[in-house]
Design a protein around this nucleic acid. Sequence first.
DNA 1: TAGACTAGTTTGTGTGGAAAACAAGTCTGT
DNA 2: ACAGACTTGTTTTCCACACAAACTAGTCTA
Lengths: 108, 108
Amino acid sequence: MSTFDSVASPPAPLDPLIHEASRLVIISVLNECEAADFNFLLGTTGLTRGNLSTHMAKLVGAGYVEETKQFVNRKQLTQYRLSPTGRNAYTQYRADWVRLTSGSGRGE
Amino acid sequence: MSTFDSVASPPAPLDPLIHEASRLVIISVLNECEAADFNFLLGTTGLTRGNLSTHMAKLVGAGYVEETKQFVNRKQLTQYRLSPTGRNAYTQYRADWVRLTSGSGRGE
DNA sequence: TAGACTAGTTTGTGTGGAAAACAAGTCTGT
DNA sequence: ACAGACTTGTTTTCCACACAAACTAGTCTA
């Protein structure tokens, strides 16, 4: 038996889908704005189209974000909004992050 | 010219060296404990040896962590501590993260 | 109807994180 | 004193995923 066998708890694993930097930006934007379209996110996040597209696909695929596609003025308009699941996950993520960076509950 | 040209500020880029989940755990542990040895980090982070080794190498390489190797009781003992640079970077990272997740300064 | 623009998606590529394999040294028993 | 197990890390291999370039689909202008 080593000195450590199960002394310290394995830290809360920080939902990778949210923790990834680009998606964290996207989600935090969506958390403020009730809904945001593709171009707005493009501007606020600074991502390329391809990148934004794949990240959104993942978030939608995970059920964190809801997608609405429509045509306005004969143009495609894709809008995104955080789902309740996504909002919960984001809240959970932030709590985990704070706990992690504040020393796992032992107090600073 | 598109609707967005430089409307929203490209968000603060969250130092990737710190943001990566495993290293974030490591650094936050080091930020509490004045110094920690390899096995202690192994226990608290839950990483494998190989993994921990490579992450520490990166942190040391970046100057965020200082490494001290010695022999105690004929055994190798490697200790790590956050450097001033690392501590600053960590502080900066946390500030960036908070700003990001609080809505880029527009206030929640 | 050709060419440019908008709005997004799909496809390659390279980085880098995770675990397996390896290395170097120590201790224990016989 | 030598074989085998254990400790303490390091190196190597593999694979997932983020990024950007290329592509697709539709609209507008001349």
